[in-house]
């Protein structure tokens, strides 16, 4: 195995294009576990942490461009970023322990393409966009269009994610992410829900994005969940409709962490709780 340390995106793209067996190394909290367990044997790892533009967080058009090599801990130390997108930051802050957060990136969480990845539903609810560099240039892709199945992404050969863009936070809006795990820390989501809502002058929900994690092969951006909220004041009736829609949309599997029936039920319960937090944040109450 070779160890490569490109200092520019172009160089990383070239290394990746020249060698289909090479893998990107960001925080390594998925890749190195798999390497050590001999589940992967790449011909090279390409460490992207020496590419300056991938290691910084910058403001752009009122939103935030987060370099794909920035670890969760660093994002969570930026109070302005946490104030704009608390749900996304809390989701990233749930990834593993303090030690894991010192390395784990959201782009790595996304590209690892686990159905249970915590930051993914939160990014999808926020309308996050991944910037991709590859042999034929740069393209921007909605986060929900990156994972295509467990461990699979829509990235083409030679492509990598260089940054994640969180758009400008609309006025009177709020986001939240909650997951259910059997413990209080250090576990993999049985269900995860991200919600982002925007209110109008009358306090009615004018826009909503609801994303469900760990209940399908890839994250679900649910239109029926959003429709249950849009046009309502986010009252109990709307939350009941949201919960029913989330339970309906979830198509989980049975595994050691939960049965189908349990996961569907929890998807509804969590959708309600997460929406309540997002609505309170949109009102400035939380």
């Amino acid at each position: 195995m070779r160890f490569e340390t490109p200092t520019t995106v172009d160089e990383a793209v070239r290394l990746l294009s020249d060698d289909p067996e090479a893998r990107i190394l960001a925080g390594g909290t998925d890749l190195l576990v798999r390497l050590r367990a001999r589940q992967v044997a790449p011909s090279a790892v390409i460490d992207v942490k020496r590419i300056a533009e991938m290691t910084v967080i910058t403001r752009e058009e009122g939103g935030w461009r987060i370099g794909a090599a920035v670890p969760s801990a660093e994002m969570n130390e930026m109070s302005d970023l946490c104030a704009d997108w608390p749900g996304v930051m809390e989701a990233a802050d749930l990834i593993g322990s303090t030690q894991i957060q010192g390395r784990a990136t959201m782009a790595g969480n996304l590209c690892n393409a686990s159905p249970a990845a915590d930051s993914v539903p939160a990014m999808v609810a926020a309308g996050a966009v991944a910037r991709i560099a590859g042999p034929s240039g740069t393209r921007d892709v909605a986060v929900e269009d990156i994972p295509t199945g467990p461990g699979q992404t829509s990235l083409k050969p030679g492509e990598l994610i260089t940054s994640i863009f969180l758009p400008v936070k609309p006025a009177m809006s709020g986001d939240a992410y909650l997951r259910f795990i059997p413990r209080t820390e250090m576990d993999i989501a049985v269900v995860g829900v991200g919600v982002h809502v925007t209110l109008d002058d009358q306090g009615k929900i004018s826009a909503a994005r609801v994303a469900l994690g760990a209940v399908a092969p890839t994250v679900i951006l649910s239109q029926s969940c959003a429709d249950a909220l849009i046009g309502t004041p986010g009252d109990d009736a709307a939350l009941d409709a949201l919960a029913a829609a989330a339970t309906e949309e979830a198509t989980p599997i049975d595994d050691k962490r939960g049965t189908v029936a349990f996961r569907k039920d929890i998807a509804g319960v969590l959708a309600r709780r997460t929406a309540k937090i997002a609505i309170a944040r949109a009102k400035g109450d939380a």
Binding site: F3, T5, L25, G28, T29, L32, V33, R36, A37, V45, D47, K49, P71, A73, G96, S97, T98, Q99, I100, G102, R103, M186
Partner: peptide
């Protein structure tokens, strides 16, 4: 554990707490 779960290998890398079992030695350059 060698898999990031136990923290027995904790070190500080450029001021950040990390598991040294999940850092390649070459990354320390």
């Amino acid at each position: 554990c060698g898999s990031g779960d136990c923290g027995a290998c904790s070190i500080i890398l450029d001021g950040r707490l990390v598991c040294s079992c999940l850092v390649l030695a070459a990354e320390a350059e």
